[in-house]
Amino acid sequence: MSLITPEFGLVFWMLVVFGIVFFLLAKFAWPVITEMIAQRNKYIEDSIQSAKDANEKLNNIKKESEKILNEAKSQQFQIVHEAQNVKDQIIAEAKKQAETEAAKIIENAKSSINAEKENALKDIKVQVIELTLQLSEKVLKKQFSDKQSQEAFINEKLDEINAINKQ
């Protein structure tokens, strides 16, 4: 029965055709395809791994940046605090200086006042002396008719001068 007897021609062609197809595909198609798929799989795996690594790094960087930020904040606080201190100190110093300056000025003023006063007193004395001289002139011009009254007058004037001096 021809149905179950292999025909030689067909066997021959099948061997030839299948052989050629097998040879060509085994040489140029299958290795390339499977190799490329394997490479792609590897690439995807690597990519996922590197993405994971990058994520981890990013997290680390985030943590680090937070740390730096916190440090900066505390530093800022410290700096502000220090500045405050410095300010207070400067103000205090300025106050002190101002006080001493003021005291000095007052002292100077006092001494100049004293000097002025002295000068004034000197002037007054000179004036008193002049006045006395004028007075004495006037007294001398007046006739000492009465010796007693003369004496009394001189005394009185002297007392007055003394009183003025004492003041």
Partner: peptide, 30 residues
């Protein structure tokens, strides 16, 4: 008898399809 019969013709056709398909996609992968 090495005639190109119906089955042999189909074999050629299949071979052509396979070569075009798989060499084509191998090129694409490359």
């Amino acid at each position: 008898d090495l005639s190109i019969t119906k089955n042999v013709f189909t074999l050629f056709l299949v071979a052509a399809i396979m070569l075009v398909l798989f060499l084509g996609i191998a090129k694409k992968y490359k």
